[in-house]
Design a binder for these strands. Structure first.
Lengths: 133, 133
DNA sequence: CTACTATTGCAATTTTGTCGCAATTTGTTA
DNA sequence: TAACAAATTGCGACAAAATTGCAATAGTAG
């Protein structure tokens, strides 16, 4: 995975620097990761650089920003892992990943029946997990 | 609508002040409205008051925060208008409201099949509208 | 190795959101 | 309606989050 992305960066004319690889590593390890989490996990990388690197990753479609609760978090884009949604627990904060064809289908149907051509979508489900219910 | 909410406020032990009604009016007119939009639309209301008022509305389930693009916006809660989702056009910025039972059903199914008790959800569809496709 | 370009850290700044408190407004009671 | 108590608001300071310009550094090609 790291190698694949390293090549993608070079291919697009960007360097696969240690710093960028460090940010990538943190995203891989913590996803979905908030900016604050990434920043604290990378004490040797400047805050501004973390922001700029994440923005670069988003532009290159390596990562994407999703919402869990009321702030966005960063995770690998759908090109590098299966498209999925998050179930966020209000009590313990656990984030569960789910993939459901039915939801995808319903979303596409709804969009096209409105003459809308969907590019992407973002679904966030908030509630209580099995343990906290 | 304003009257209904005025009564709800009083009923809950809060005053329906001019300031609060002004914030409500701005939400009604601009929804979904970003905090910055609300703040600029209400030059005579202090920034802190706008935040406090929106928070109060959210607590009382008069308004809710939703995501369109990458910051949250404020709109009336589902108690005062039909639950819906947004189709946001990348080109012209139009936001289309849609309501689809199929999506709701699929979301509930997915949540419960994971032992998750959903409280609310937020779906945002990004793409191109009929005119801009 | 040298020279050029991209990347990074740093510091300053902007934007966003919060807090305590004094002043004002609102609601109540007489 | 006058006056008091409680709720609400504005103000100013502050804190946190995000962005920017620029100089120093690291990466890359020849």
């Amino acid at each position: 995975m790291e190698l694949e992305i390293k090549n993608l960066l070079k291919q697009q004319g960007f360097s696969a620097t240690k710093t960028r690889m460090a940010v990538l590593g943190a995203i891989l390890k913590m996803q979905p990761a908030s900016m604050q989490q990434l920043i604290s996990a990378l004490p040797d990388v400047d805050r501004a650089t973390v922001y700029r690197t994440v923005d670069l990753f988003v532009e290159l479609n390596i990562a994407k920003k999703v919402h869990t609760g009321f702030k966005y978090r960063v995770e690998l884009s759908d090109s590098f892992q299966e498209h999925h949604h998050h179930l966020t627990c209000l009590r313990c904060g656990t984030v569960l990943d789910v993939h459901t064809p039915e939801i995808e289908y319903a979303i596409d149907q709804t969009a096209s029946s409105n003459g809308f051509r969907p590019v992407r979508h973002d679904l966030e489900i908030i509630g209580y997990c099995a343990q906290c219910s």
